[in-house]
Design a protein around this nucleic acid. Sequence first.
DNA 1: GTGGTCTAGACCACT
DNA 2: GTGGTCTAGACCACC
Lengths: 133, 133, 133, 133
Amino acid sequence: MAIRVETTSTVPIYEQIADQIVFAVATADLQPGDPVPSVRDLSVQLTVNPNTVVRAYQELERMGVIEPVRGRGMFITSDAAKTCRDRRKELIRDTVKATVREAVSAGLTADDLHALIDAEWPHPIRNGSHKSK
Amino acid sequence: MAIRVETTSTVPIYEQIADQIVFAVATADLQPGDPVPSVRDLSVQLTVNPNTVVRAYQELERMGVIEPVRGRGMFITSDAAKTCRDRRKELIRDTVKATVREAVSAGLTADDLHALIDAEWPHPIRNGSHKSK
Amino acid sequence: MAIRVETTSTVPIYEQIADQIVFAVATADLQPGDPVPSVRDLSVQLTVNPNTVVRAYQELERMGVIEPVRGRGMFITSDAAKTCRDRRKELIRDTVKATVREAVSAGLTADDLHALIDAEWPHPIRNGSHKSK
Amino acid sequence: MAIRVETTSTVPIYEQIADQIVFAVATADLQPGDPVPSVRDLSVQLTVNPNTVVRAYQELERMGVIEPVRGRGMFITSDAAKTCRDRRKELIRDTVKATVREAVSAGLTADDLHALIDAEWPHPIRNGSHKSK
DNA sequence: GTGGTCTAGACCACT
DNA sequence: GTGGTCTAGACCACC
């Protein structure tokens, strides 16, 4: 479970952290009962202000993704998986919606956008791309 | 040339204005030599502070998209078209890149993402969708 | 007597016009009694707003460089030569003062500045430059 | 690192501030990684509106001279030194070019201009001036 | 504490 | 009329 933050991004650091943990839970990289790193450890590891990690964890706690166990730390809750999958779906839908809006206002067709996505997709699509049936 | 701003968006208003003008030039809705609305007019039309428009125009001037003619207003430069097409391409590529990154980290396949886009595309695709050839 | 204006410059157009006439008088390109072009002609020639020429001429009249002759136009005054030579000297001294200040704050030596000037001087200095010891 | 602004000058205050920081970096008075004064501090120190400082800093950020670290302030970038040296050179060359143009159109010789500069140079040149042949 | 954005309104120079 | 600059002060998010 490696978390990476981009200090240059406009996305708040605490949100980057929270989102990455949400995604890790959604993909089962983190499972219910697993501990999350201590605020202190994570802040050192990311060279980030501890308060920033605290805020990320507050967000996650508010969403019911993690819960504190007194004296032991914070742990993934039992029903985090569903919450995170839902949250992930919501995040992606928002992103896609914004992308589509931008593409439309630029006068692109749906096919143009699909082509751009394929071009940016990390593992080049060799065959059986979306274009073929 | 209708400009619309969303005050709720996290994207600064001045950037929304600048981007829309860039897109308008890229699609030839605005052509070299055309005037852009006066700062005062646009600020009234958008019910936005004049300084916000000023800042948008400063961005565009810095990019070489518009140029001031003293006492007369701001005008689309002669080489704005190329600049704007490039800029538009860049903006979209950045957006797509971010979207793909998010989709990948969520464990989606390329086909999943394509499906999401079609779902969000404003004019529903009736037939001959990207899926078919 | 060819006047040229740069609309891109930050120097007001009316001032560019006035300064060039001052310089022309100072170098005797324009002599006492000579007419200056009519507002209308000059504004057409420079593709500039007539009011801009009017303002330039007002400046010159205020300085006593030109004077109106009813129904005939504006003419160089008899004591314009001295006024213009003084004014020219003043303008140049101001410019030099600003240049020196900038060079000093950039950490240049006087010799550095002299070298820069020779480099920019239009007619290359072949020998016997200021540098020779 | 003392910044001084002249409110009487025609040069915008925000530009005076930006230029002085550029010069400070070019002369290594400010080094990569160094912080620049906070917007609030500098605005108080110069008795200038914070927004004026903000604008100066925006200029510098756009040039890649400083970069914001969220919640901590603005810092000199690692490659600011070269940028600033280039920029300083450009600024001075522009100034010199304008000065030479003015001198030429006034009918001065290169030697005349050199003499004027020596006359304005802050620490009078005692001997071995450039004039010596 | 930091910078980022926006509003409101003023004054100026230029056309 | 136009844009350019500056002031004053507010609110926000982030650290």
